[in-house]
Design a protein around this nucleic acid. Structure first.
Length: 117
DNA sequence: CCACTGACGAGTG
DNA sequence: GCACTCGCCAGTG
């Protein structure tokens, strides 16, 4: 049953489920939160994150496998990159991440092929 | 209530 | 790979 609560809470709950060393896309988070097709809502929810909220938001990237924040030329983009690398996720110079390698859930289930680690 | 903006996704050229 | 368009929802003035 769906709870008429805030969509933000569902999104936060989903983001919290992302295992360490893995990344996922906004669309995936939206889907797992019951908000399929509303990837923008995820981005909006994360942008409205209260100060001091504990959430692995840095594991959420866009469908292109890039760090949206880094693209937007924001200081936070650097933080996301550092946090990902600290977890073992390799980030390209262009802020690109291999979804085929670190992709969580969808990418993992849809592409169960061997992962050249 | 209307217009604009925003951490997106998918499609098209 | 890049630029543009449409669709989606929420917040702000």
């Amino acid at each position: 049953m769906k709870r008429p609560g805030s969509s933000h809470e569902r999104i936060y709950a989903t983001v919290r489920k992302i295992p360490k060393g893995r990344v996922t896309t906004y669309g995936t988070v939206a889907r797992l939160s019951g908000l399929a097709g509303q990837a923008r809502l995820v981005g909006y929810a994360l942008s409205a994150l209260p100060n001091g909220t504990v959430l692995p938001w840095h594991r959420v990237i866009n469908a292109q496998g890039r760090l949206s924040l880094e693209q937007s030329s924001s200081g936070a983009g650097i933080t996301q990159r550092l946090r990902l690398e600290a977890e073992g996720v390799k980030v390209d110079a262009s802020g690109r991440v291999s979804l085929a390698r670190y992709g969580w859930r969808l990418a993992e289930t849809k592409t169960p092929r061997s992962r050249p680690i």
